[in-house]
Each structure stands twice: as C-alpha cells, then as structure tokens.
C-alpha cells in the first residue's frame, strides 16, 4: 500500500518537473514576444533601454529552458514524430488526472 503511494508520488514528481518546465518554456516564449511588442511601442529612450535589456534577458532565459528540456528529452524540435508521441502521452496524463 505504502509502496504504491510512494510509486505514485515519485511518478508524479517526474511529471511535476516536466509540467513546470513546460509551463516555464511557454512563459519564456510569451515573455520574448511580449517584450518585442513593448520595445516597438517605445519612444522614450529611458523606457526603451530598460525593455531592450529585459528582452535580451528573456531571450537568454528562453535559450536556457529550451536547452534544458531538449537535454531531458521533453522537447524534440528535430524529431516531429517523437514530439507528437510525447504530446499524446502528455494529453492522456492531463486528461486522466482526477479533478
């Protein structure tokens, strides 16, 4: 009994890491896009300088998280079929979660 709970918990741990990383990647992506939008609406040099620097940082963050996810095998930009298999698996897990 305890064993299955533990198994479940550790399994969920893996899952949580992946979901958190995925969420982070999606956020990092939106961050880059939002900053690019914001920079092109700027007229005051002071505001623009801040947003431009933060855009660069957002790009760095995106690079870091996508490299991490590729490394862990959670993101397969080169292998579309592999990525789709992973997507389907994730869909099943998410749909199957008790609510």
């Amino acid at each position: 009994m305890l064993n299955t709970i533990l198994e479940h918990l550790t399994g969920m741990d893996q899952m949580t890491d992946q979901v958190i990383a995925m969420d982070f990647l999606v956020n990092a992506k939106s961050g880059v896009r939002n900053y690019a939008m914001a920079v092109t609406e700027c007229a005051t040099p002071e505001v623009k300088a801040v947003l431009e620097k933060q855009l660069e940082e957002a790009i760095d963050t995106h690079e870091r998280i996508s490299a991490y996810m590729i490394d862990r095998g959670w993101y397969h930009p080169h292998l579309v079929n592999e990525q789709i298999r992973l997507d389907l698996q994730n869909i099943e897990t998410a749909v199957g979660l008790p609510s």
């Binding site: 490299a67 590729i70 490394d71 930009p77 080169h78 579309v80």
Partner: peptide
C-alpha cells in the same frame, strides 16, 4: 545534446 546535420522543421 546530439548534433543534427540539418535544422529542425519549425525553425526552418
């Protein structure tokens, strides 16, 4: 990360 000779589909 393994090196790929070509680009990924989306980036292409």
């Amino acid at each position: 990360m393994t090196a790929f000779p070509s680009l990924a589909p989306h980036e292409s």
